[in-house]
Design a protein around this nucleic acid. Structure first.
Length: 155
DNA sequence: GCCAACGTTGGC
DNA sequence: GCCAACGTTGGC
């Protein structure tokens, strides 16, 4: 099983929003590196759910991948801001997965805490100017987060 | 293929 | 609201 981190602006879609639904398409990702990670996801993979553009920015929950990657529906919708006229159903450019909430963290873990956590030193999350919205989380990073919380996650 | 201009992300 | 970082676009 692989582990990931996915970012969302809570004003747009929060972890509480995810908890209120059975599952949610993770669409609208328009970055090739992030897309390639979406395509590597497998059913059952766990994702840390991160609130970006929040005060403070923090990891708030765990989600689970419930479908492998599919063509992102929004790329074909001319009314969507995620519409991509260069994409076609025959040769879709963008992908999405579907995710479901597993659990809220016992408390939010802030970006500042993860910056201070040696296990997270190499993560794209703590790189200066980081904008990548989907990326892998290593076992060491996962364990480091659990150590901060004093609790296992996603059991 | 280079690179300047521009747009977006996201922390602060 | 500011601005640094970075990805994309398009002229050449």
């Amino acid at each position: 099983m692989n582990r990931w981190l996915i970012k969302s602006e809570p004003d747009v879609f929060s972890f509480a929003d995810l908890q209120a639904r059975e599952k949610e398409p993770w669409n609208g990702v328009r970055n090739y590196q992030a897309r390639n990670f979406l395509r590597q996801m497998e059913v059952g993979d766990l994702c840390l759910f991160y609130h970006s553009n929040a005060a403070p920015p923090c990891v708030v929950g765990v989600a689970r991948v419930v479908t492998v990657s599919l063509p992102d529906d929004l790329q074909f919708d001319p009314t969507s801001s995620y519409y991509d006229p260069k994409s076609s159903p025959e040769n879709p450019r963008w992908s999405m997965v579907e995710v479901a909430a597993v659990q809220a963290l016992p408390r939010p873990v802030t970006l500042a805490e993860l910056r201070d956590c040696p296990a997270w030193e190499g993560s794209p999350l703590v790189r200066k100017g980081a904008r990548l919205s989907v990326f892998p989380v290593t076992e060491e990073e996962w364990t480091g987060l659990e150590a901060l919380l004093g609790e296992r996650l996603g059991e």
